[in-house]
Amino acid sequence: MGDGLMIQVENLTKRYAGHTAVTDVSFNVSRGEIVGLLGPNGAGKSTIMRILSCYMPASAGTVRVAEHDVFTEADEVRRRIGYMPENNPLHRDMRVREYLRFRGALKGLTRNRCRERAEIVMQQCGLAEVHRKIIGHLSKGYQQRVGLADALIHEPELIILDEPTIGLDPNQIRAVRQLIKDLGQKHTVLISTHILPEVEMTCNRVLILHQGRILAADTTENLQHLMSDRGQVIAEIAAPVAELKACWEQMPEIEHFDLAPVDGDYIRCSLTGQPGVDLRPQVFASVCAQGWQMRELTRSRHSLEDIFVRVTHGEKEEEAS
C-alpha cells in the first residue's frame, strides 16, 4: 500500500482553542502530480499545509509524506519537502544569494553543493540578475521568486506552496504559474489558492475545501464538467416580453428563467437548464424560428463562488434529508 504515493492523509482533524479548522479530511497525492487546494479564506488550506510541513501536529488522524509520519519522523519529512508559507516570509535584510546559501546550509547541503544549487535555482527562478540585491529592496514578484527558490534549493521531492501568486501583478502571476508547471515535471507539487483559473491552468487535480472539509476532489476536467453541466445561458434578444415568456415556458429543458430589459428593445434572459443539457443550440433555433434579433448568446462563467454555493447547497440538502 502507498506505493508511489507522496502524501497520505487519513481522517485528519485539527482543533484550535475554540474552533475546529479541519474536520476529518482524507486524501492522497501520487508522485508527480500537481494538486491544488482550492477554497475561500479560512477553509483550512493553510492549516493542512502547516501540518504537512511539520510546523504543527494534527489533533487526530495520520499524515504521511513519502512514507514517513509527519509527527514521529518530522526530520525525515522536512528533508523531503520545500515549503513556502503564506505571505512568503523572508529575511529582508539579507542579499538574495546569501539568503539562498543560508537556507541551503540549514537544509543540510554541504558548502559546495549549496553554492551549486543556489546558482541553479537562481537561474531557474530568474533571479540571476538580482543576486546581489537586498531582499527587502526587491519588488514583490522577485521576492516571491526568492521564496520559490528557497523551497527548491534542496531538491525536495514534494513542494508545498501556500498561495504562491497572491499580491502579484498579472504578468508576474503568469510567470509564477509557468514556473510551477515546469516544476511539476520533476517534483510533486501541492499549491493552495482561492483563484479558480489558477487551478485550471496549473493543476492536474483539485481538492475543494470549505469550512475544514473536502467537498469535492477531482481532476480539473471533471470539475469543469461538473461546473458546466447545469450551465446558465445568457441571451439578449429583441422581442416582446410576453412572447419570450411563452417561448421559454414551452421549452421543457429550461428549469428556471429571468427576464430583465436592457437598452432599446433588448431583453436579457438568464436561462437555467436541467443538468447535463447545453441550452445554447435550442435557444438559437427558437430565436431563428421566431425571427427575433439576438445580439448575445453565452454560457455564464461559473465563478468559484457558484461552485461553493452548489456544493455547500448539496451538502445542506443531504443533511436535511
Partner: peptide, 14 residues
C-alpha cells in the same frame, strides 16, 4: 512577527 519563524521551523532543524 515577520513569519520567518515558520520557514525556520519547517527546515530540518531541531
Amino acid at each position: 512577527s515577520s513569519g520567518t519563524f515558520e520557514t525556520l521551523m519547517t527546515a530540518p532543524v531541531s
